[in-house]
Nucleic acid binder design. Structure first.
Length: 351
DNA sequence: AAGCCGGGGTT
DNA sequence: AACCCAGGCTT
């Protein structure tokens, strides 16, 4: 077994994280759910979501049987909603195709929606003890430094080298602990900024440290600036004080979530209808804009509060539009910034 | 190979 | 403000 793995495992016993909710019990369903939630999302953020999710959907059959809306509602605020849609599809596929038991090969797992090579590796290693590597953000950083691997890890050539290194360093046993250990090392010692090399168990073999160039690895991605976009957000209320929501298209930004009608960019199918409604409304007032940063563009939401004197005809497909009282908003899957904006807009004594 | 998908934390 | 985070999917 590699010296890297030996030192890492010894360090893990003393300094690793042993009390994460998905470690007890460390079974495939819980590992899978945690892995999906943890994609691009920090541990501290995930824990309360994971706990609520397990309470509501204790096993894969419960998840597969649930309507997508329930899953999205529990996911609301976690972001990357394609993960929730894939999670739901994946649960149904595992029940239909495998009777609810996770497959135990890399190829079969990677066929499933939302599971790539790293997540598949994590499930095999952590739930089944198989000798399969992972390569998430933590491991990328640890290995890029340990092997002094040059280049930005987003490129296929660098990815390939890192996967090879990850494979070469695997232990002969304790795969579940090892997988947790290398992530813990990245999260608590080999951090992106100010790595604590003096506390690092694998410092003796670290190539970047030997070059006194730990900060040079991994090489950062080239930066680009984000375009600015904007949209009208129509907070339409009927005479009963209920708010109009629409279901967004299943794919794309905020896919499948409930949201007040948008005009301009990110528009909805009912855009023309909403524009007419806006043009004929008598009680309209502007609310302060909200800026929201997406990965690849900045969005400014410009809310308009519209109070209707009579109920309008709804024009969408049945089930795609909804009048809700403000008190029931929390039960629906809304984008977090939109939810906050609504709560803010109507908490300040505005009728 | 590059773009698409959020939100919170850190510095 | 910029960067980072338990990535995967699509083109």
């Amino acid at each position: 077994m590699s010296a890297f793995a030996q030192r890492l495992l010894a360090w893990f016993d003393q300094h690793g994280r042993h009390d994460l909710p998905w470690q007890h019990p460390r079974e495939a369903y819980r590992v899978w759910l945690a892995e999906i939630m943890l994609q691009q999302t920090q541990v501290a953020t995930v824990i309360p979501y994971f706990t609520r999710f397990i309470a509501r959907f204790p096993d894969i059959h419960a998840l597969a049987a649930a309507p997508l809306d329930d899953v999205l509602a529990l996911w609301s605020g976690l972001g990357y909603y394609a993960r929730a849609r894939n999670l739901h599809r994946c649960a149904r596929q595992i029940v239909a195709q495998y009777g609810g038991t996770f497959p135990r090969t890399l190829e079969a797992l990677m066929e499933l929606p939302g599971i790539g090579r790293s997540t598949a590796g994590a499930i095999l290693a952590q739930a089944f003890g198989q000798r399969t590597p992972i390569l998430d953000g933590n491991v990328r950083r640890v290995l890029a430094r340990y092997g002094a691997v040059p280049g930005w890890p987003g490129t296929p050539a660098v990815q390939k080298r890192l996967w090879q290194l990850a494979e070469a360093l695997l232990p002969d046993e304790r795969m579940a602990d090892y997988t947790q250990a290398i992530m813990d090392l990245g999260a608590t010692v080999c951090t992106a900024r100010k790595p604590a090399c003096v506390r690092c168990p694998v410092a003796p073999g670290c190539a970047a440290l030997a070059q006194n160039a730990v900060a040079e690895y991994p090489h950062p991605r080239s930066k680009k600036k984000r375009p600015q976009r904007h949209a009208r957000l129509l907070l339409i209320r009927n005479p009963q004080g209920q708010l109009l929501l629409e279901r967004r298209a299943p794919l794309g930004i905020w896919g499948g979530l409930w949201c007040p009608p948008l005009l301009g960019e990110l528009h909805l199918a009912s855009g023309t209808w909403a524009q007419i409604l806006l043009d004929t409304a008598s009680r309209v007032r502007q609310l302060p804009p909200l800026r929201h940063a997406f990965t690849h563009f900045d969005l400014e939401l410009r809310p308009l509060q519209i109070e209707l004197d009579a109920m309008p005809e709804l024009i969408c497909e049945p089930g795609q539009q909804l009048w809700v009282s403000l008190s029931t908003l929390s039960h629906l899957g809304l984008p977090a910034p939109v939810r906050r904006l609504i709560e803010q807009s109507f908490s300040l004594g505005s009728t």
